[in-house]
Simulated scan of single mutants.
Amino acid sequence: MLMSFTDRPASLSYGPNGFRVLSPGHYVTCAVTGEKIALEALRYWSVERQEPYASADIATRHLLDQA
């Protein structure tokens, strides 16, 4: 039987130039909004905090709020 990962979150390791899949899945959850982000659409994350963001605006606001 083939397993589908479309309903499972992926576990990723975030690096400065990309991310590595630690556990397969179809999406990650935005650290700020809780929105599901398809891996194909994931463009913004924090290497230091190891967390994904749904948009550049959300990432910027979150990182500025934490400073």
Score class of each variant (00 low, 15 high):
M1D: 06
M1L: 09
L2T: 12
L2F: 12
M3Q: 14
S4M: 11
S4G: 13
S4T: 15
F5K: 14
T6E: 15
T6H: 06
T6K: 06
D7P: 00
D7Q: 12
R8S: 11
R8P: 01
R8A: 08
R8E: 15
R8H: 13
P9M: 05
P9S: 12
P9A: 10
P9I: 03
A10P: 06
A10L: 12
S11C: 02
L12R: 03
L12Q: 03
S13I: 09
G15C: 00
G15S: 00
P16E: 15
P16Y: 09
P16L: 07
P16H: 08
N17Q: 13
N17F: 12
G18V: 07
G18K: 11
G18P: 06
F19N: 11
R20C: 00
R20M: 04
V21K: 04
L22Y: 00
L22R: 09
L22E: 13
S23K: 05
S23N: 07
S23T: 15
P24K: 08
P24V: 06
P24G: 13
H26Y: 10
H26A: 15
H26R: 14
H26Q: 13
Y27K: 07
Y27V: 03
Y27C: 09
Y27G: 01
Y27N: 02
Y27T: 02
V28Q: 05
V28D: 04
V28W: 04
T29V: 15
C30G: 05
C30K: 10
A31I: 04
A31F: 12
V32D: 13
G34T: 03
G34K: 00
G34V: 03
E35N: 09
E35H: 11
E35V: 12
I37A: 00
I37C: 00
I37R: 00
A38N: 12
A38V: 11
A38C: 07
L39A: 05
L39R: 07
L39F: 08
E40I: 13
A41N: 15
A41D: 15
L42H: 05
L42M: 04
L42R: 05
L42A: 02
L42Y: 07
Y44E: 14
Y44G: 01
W45F: 13
W45D: 02
W45Y: 14
S46I: 03
S46W: 10
E48N: 11
E48D: 15
E48T: 15
E48Y: 06
R49H: 12
R49M: 11
Q50F: 07
E51Q: 15
E51D: 09
E51I: 08
E51G: 08
P52Q: 10
P52G: 13
P52V: 08
P52F: 05
P52E: 11
Y53Q: 08
A54D: 12
A54W: 01
A54K: 04
S55F: 02
S55P: 01
S55H: 02
A56L: 14
D57T: 15
I58S: 01
A59T: 01
T60D: 11
T60C: 10
T60V: 11
R61H: 00
R61C: 00
H62R: 03
L63G: 00
L63R: 09
L64V: 14
L64A: 10
L64Q: 13
D65R: 05
D65H: 06
Q66D: 11
A67G: 10
